[in-house]
Write a protein that binds this DNA or RNA. Structure first.
Lengths: 139, 139
DNA sequence: TTTTGCACTTGCAATTTGCAAGCAAAGGTA
DNA sequence: TACCTTTGCTTGCAAATTGCAAGTGCAAAA
């Protein structure tokens, strides 16, 4: 998919630049699992994103301020990618996608366990996770 | 974007066949606004989907049972596309996407009005809309 | 019987993807 | 200090996908 496009082009009222494709979703999912990842971390994901695609998607995410690029505390050679507030705010969408996927597909056990918690108290879960993600940005 | 791919390839635990891209989202959005649309109706959407892309996306949606193809009551030359229950169940995701978009972008006035209702009672809104969509499938 | 409308299909150039290889800067090791 | 490794990309290229325009076949209207 072309990752360019005007805001008016997008069926959901915001640019596809921002919302993105499968690989964009993968990056966001990974960052929600552990906010603060290196380029190499993304490459290690089981979905095997190609390095040029990863670079282009990270650039688009940064340009759209869903993600920020920070210095890694361990080394100047490394880079830390983190979700911004705008990126963290995608959490409710990710939760709903997962609830839908659980209803119609077989999903991994660990994700199922997480969804049990969601089903007990969705708002509580989202608040807790959001807080957690914000906190991981502050050190 | 390739609309093929194995379930295991998808970052959210379900095939991208099913979730799809920008154009897939557009089709689903249109069907949620008015369930029961013809091929030509989709082509008339302001986003200007190309006819070959529309055909390929509708086929994928049908294969994945998010959408069904029915006879049009008015004419044999026409086709009616409708959301299935599986498609209707994407509503909570669409709602969250719209809430997010409203927070970070300028969205059309009519959509804003709808979101006011959502913000008052999200669960109520989703139940009402779901009922409405299911009802439109029964005649 | 001709024309129009509708739902696609086809052909083709341009763009994007996916894979492999390359590369520069930083860090570690001898 | 010289040399290898790690890290974060970039580049080249074949194959796949998109976007545009034109065409096709069937149904209904005129």
């Amino acid at each position: 998919m072309k990752v360019t496009g005007k805001r008016s082009d997008c069926p959901i009222g915001c640019s596809l630049d921002v919302w993105g494709d499968k690989w964009t979703l993968l990056i966001i999912r990974d960052l929600m699992e552990a906010n603060g990842r290196t380029y190499g971390d993304f490459l290690k994901s089981p979905e095997r994103i190609a390095t040029n695609i990863l670079a282009s998607r990270l650039q688009a995410l940064e340009e759209n301020q869903l993600v920020v690029k920070l210095e890694h505390p361990d080394s100047k050679a490394k880079v830390l990618y983190k979700l911004t507030q705008k990126g963290i705010d995608l959490l409710p969408i990710m939760v709903e996608i997962n609830l839908w996927a659980e209803k119609y597909f077989t999903i991994p056990e660990d994700r199922k366990a997480m969804l049990e918690e969601v089903k007990k108290d969705k708002d509580g879960f989202i608040k807790k996770m959001t807080k957690h993600l914000i906190a991981s940005n502050e050190n």
